[in-house]
């Protein structure tokens, strides 16, 4: 019974704070995406025609933790199969945040665009049992003036 109460408290805390953080983070991401909309990102590797600017490596990285609610929801998905929607929002936030941080660095360098943008992800608590998982996303590219 005690364990059940602790579980429910953790679940409620995880859900409440998790939702609050997620909502705030998404609002902040959308606002900054507007702010940096003049800075263009491209996936191609070569300099655009007519561009003779020097290139600079820019990176942005972020680590986002799952909350207790997401962990339990993902655990249930692990039994039933299907989309882990609890993780999808997490990875989406991490991806967009990493690109924004990369853009922030590019702006400091006075760049107007970033080419050859790549994204990489890593699980911070890989294979560790009984720990709360977290995802790292790194975005990097070549900034051009």
């Amino acid at each position: 019974m005690e364990q059940l109460i602790i579980f429910l408290v953790l679940l409620t805390l995880g859900f409440g704070f998790g939702r609050l953080n997620e909502r705030r983070h998404f609002a902040s991401i959308r606002q900054r995406e507007q702010q940096y909309s003049h800075l263009l990102c491209f996936s191609f590797r070569h300099l655009p025609q007519g561009c003779h600017s020097e290139g600079q490596l820019v990176t942005g990285s972020v680590v986002v933790s799952i909350d207790y609610f997401k962990r339990i929801a993902a655990g249930l998905r692990g039994l039933l199969g299907g989309r882990i929607t609890a993780y999808e929002t997490l990875v989406e936030r991490a991806r967009r945040e990493a690109v924004l941080r990369m853009k922030a660095e590019a702006e400091q360098l006075g760049a107007s665009k970033v080419i050859n943008v790549k994204l990489e992800t890593a699980s911070v608590f890989k294979n560790a049992q009984e720990t709360v998982g977290a995802v790292e996303v790194v975005a990097y590219g070549t900034a051009l003036r």
Partner: peptide, 12 residues
Amino acid sequence: INYSQQSPLGEF
């Protein structure tokens, strides 16, 4: 598109 905007409670 990449994620669901519905509340996770129903699914949970």
